[in-house]
Design a protein around this nucleic acid. Structure first.
Length: 476
RNA sequence: GCGGUCAUGGUGUAAUGGUUAACACAGGAGAUUGUGGCUCUCCUGAUCCGGGUUCGAUUCCCGGUGAUCGCCCCA
C-alpha cells in the first residue's frame, strides 16, 4: 500500500491538522485565500516532484557506459550462441512466490506487489530467471534443440534500502541455459561471464561452490543446524535468526565472535551426494582448462531457494580482500525449477545474472576508457536561406555515411565554430547567404584554418575524398 | 527494517545568528550583425522540506525527506 498519495503532502507540513490538506483541494473561499497567501503553500504547488527513493535517471553523460555494456553483452551472447529474449516487467505474483521461496527477504519484504484493476495479484519482477523459465515452458521450448540458451537485459525492482550500486530499480543482464545438465555448461556460463567483464575492462575472480541436490542439502542443513544449536549461546543475534529461518546463511556471518564457530562448522562439500560431487569436479576441471581464475568458496550459498549443485559469484579482482559488499553477479544451476513451475520433470538448467549498475560502477572505478563516437564534419549555417538548404544537405551527408554534426539552434557563426571545435571534427562546412546565392559552400580545415570554396552539389564526394586518408590513418 | 555521517546555483567548493550568500567550471548574451582553440565584459542560477528557539535562522535544536557508509539482504 502506498503511504503517500500526493507528493504535495510532503511540502505541506505533515504535522498540521489533516484539514490543511482539505483546504488545499476544497472550496471555502476564505480559508482558500489564506492558504494561497501562504508562501510555502504557493510554492508547494510548483514544487517539482522528486525522484522516488532508490530510483534514478540515467543521464546522457552516463549512456556511453550503458551502450558499451549492452554492446559487449550482445556480442558475447552471439558468440556463445545465446538468443535474445525480452520478458515482461510485470508478472503474476504466484510465479515469483513459487520460484524464489517464500522465506526469502525478497519475497517477504522487498517486492513491489499489488492487485491490478482486474483483481490479479501482480509484481514488478525482482529478478528474471523465473520469467525466463516461465517463457521456456509457456512456449514449449522443450521441443527445440536442447539446451535452449537465452539472454536478456532489463530492469528489476526490489524495495530495499538504497546504497551505492544498489537501487530499487536496477538492471540485470542474464544468461540461461535450459535443458541440459552437462557440467561444461555451468563452466561455460562462468567463462563467458569472465570474458564479458574482461571485454569491459574488469578483471574478475569467480567464487564457486556446490550446494548439492535438494535432498543432500537438506541433510547438510540438519547437520549445520544441530551444530549451531549446540553453540547457540555464543552466536550473534542475526545468526540466531538465520538458524531458524535460513541456516545456510549462517555461513555468511561477518560478526567477529561468530568466526571461530563458523570455521569449525561442517562443510557442505562433505555432504554432497556422489552425483553432485562428480558434477562439481567436472565443472572445476573445465574452469581450469578455460583458464578462468576462481576460488573454491565452501561458504558461498546464494540467497535464492531454487539453486542446486553449482553456485557462483563474480567479484572484481580489485575488490578481493576488501570488504566491498557488492558482487558483480552470480548464478548457478537450478535443476528443479522448471519442474517446480510445471515444466517437464527433470529438466535441468543453469544461469547467471549480472548487475549492470555494478558493472558500470566498477568500470568507473577502474577508469575504463569509453569509445567516443567521433564526427567528421560540422555544418555551420548563417541566415534563413542557408538553414533551409542545411537540413537537406545534412541528410545527404548522413546518408552517404559522413558523420556530420550541426547546431541549427544557434545563429552566430562564432558559436557554431566553437561547437565544431568541441566536436573535434577535422572539417567544418560553412554555408552563408553569399554561398547560397553562388551555389557554393566553404570547407574549413579545422586544424590549419585553411578554407576553400567548393561547388555545393559536389560537396559529398569531395568530403569523402578528403576523409578517406584520415580513416586509413585511424585504422593503422 | 536497524545504526553512523551528511545536505548551499547544473557541477565542485566557500562563508555567516544580522544589509546584495562568495568563487571556479558549465550554461546564455556580447567585444563594429561572416570565422573556433587564448582573452575580456555582462547575465542566468542555490542555503532539501516542515516546525521550534530568537527581535532576527542558511547557520542552533527537533522532526521529515534524500544521499552515503556499515548491518540485514542481494545484482
Amino acid at each position: 500500500m502506498p503511504k503517500k498519495v500526493f507528493s504535495i503532502k510532503k511540502s505541506v507540513s505533515s504535522k498540521k491538522a489533516p484539514e490543511s490538506e482539505e483546504e488545499l483541494f476544497s472550496e471555502p473561499s476564505e480559508t482558500k485565500k489564506a492558504v494561497v497567501n501562504s508562501p510555502s503553500v504557493v510554492r508547494a504547488g510548483k514544487r517539482t516532484p522528486e525522484l522516488l527513493r532508490g530510483f534514478r535517471d540515467i543521464l546522457p553523460d552516463e549512456q556511453p557506459y550503458w551502450d558499451m555494456v549492452r554492446d559487449a553483452t550482445r556480442s558475447v551472447a552471439e558468440a556463445y550462441s545465446f538468443d535474445r529474449i525480452d520478458l515482461p516487467i510485470l508478472e503474476r505474483e504466484e510465479l515469483i512466490l513459487r520460484t524464489i521461496g517464500k522465506q526469502t527477504d525478497i519475497v517477504e519484504k522487498e517486492m513491489y506487489a499489488f492487485e491490478d484493476q482486474g483483481g490479479d495479484r501482480v509484481v514488478l519482477r525482482p529478478e528474471m530467471t523465473a520469467s525466463a523459465v516461465r517463457a521456456y515452458i509457456n512456449h514449449g521450448m522443450l521441443n527445440l534443440s536442447q539446451p535452449v540458451k537465452l539472454y536478456y537485459m532489463g530492469p528489476n525492482f526490489r524495495y530495499e534500502r538504497p546504497q551505492a550500486g544498489r537501487y530499487r530499480q536496477h538492471h540485470q543482464i542474464g544468461f540461461e541455459v535450459m535443458g541440459s545438465e552437462e557440467p561444461i555448461l555451468d563452466a561455460q556460463l562462468m567463462v563467458l561471464t569472465f570474458h564479458l567483464l574482461k571485454d569491459l575492462g574488469i578483471d574478475t575472480v569467480m567464487h564457486v561452490n556446490s550446494i548439492g541436490t535438494l535432498e543432500s542439502r537438506q541433510q547438510y542443513k540438519t547437520e549445520l543446524t544441530s551444530y549451531y544449536r549446540s553453540k547457540r549461546n555464543q552466536i550473534c543475534e542475526d545468526c540466531k535468526r538465520r538458524l531458524l529461518k535460513n541456516p545456510l546463511r549462517l555461513l555468511d556471518c561477518k560478526v567477529e565472535t561468530c568466526q571461530p564457530i563458523k570455521a569449525d562448522a561442517p562443510q557442505i562439500l562433505d555432504w554432497l551426494d556422489e552425483d553432485s560431487k562428480n558434477h562439481f569436479m567436472h565443472v572445476l576441471e573445465f574452469l581450469d582448462e578455460a583458464g578462468v581464475p576462481y576460488t573454491l568458496d565452501s561458504r558461498l550459498v546464494r540467497g535464492l531457494d531454487y539453486y542446486t549443485r553449482t553456485v557462483f559469484e563474480i567479484w572484481a579482482a580489485a575488490d578481493e580482500g576488501e570488504r566491498s559488499q557488492n558482487s558483480l553477479g552470480g548464478g548457478g544451476r537450478y535443476d528443479n525449477l522448471i519442474e517446480m513451475l510445471g515444466g517437464r520433470e527433470g529438466t535441468p538448467a543453469c544461469g547467471v545474472a549480472l548487475g549492470m549498475e555494478r558493472i558500470i560502477l566498477a568500470m568507473r572505478e577502474l577508469q575504463v576508457e569509453i569509445p567516443k563516437h567521433g564526427a567528421d564534419v560540422f555544418f555551420a549555417q548563417l541566415g534563413d536561406a542557408a538553414r533551409r538548404q542545411g537540413l537537406r544537405l545534412f541528410e545527404e551527408c548522413r546518408r552517404s555515411g559522413i558523420r556530420i554534426r550541426e547546431a541549427f539552434g544557434k545563429n552566430a557563426l562564432k558559436t557554431q565554430l566553437e561547437l565544431a571545435n568541441k566536436c573535434a571534427v577535422p572539417y567544418t562546412l560553412i554555408l552563408g547567404q553569399k554561398e547560397v546565392l553562388d551555389g557554393t559552400i566553404i570547407i574549413r580545415d579545422m586544424e590549419s584554418g585553411a578554407q576553400e570554396i567548393a561547388d555545393v552539389t559536389k560537396i559529398v564526394s569531395l568530403l569523402k575524398k578528403k576523409l578517406e586518408p584520415k580513416e586509413k590513418e585511424e585504422k593503422s
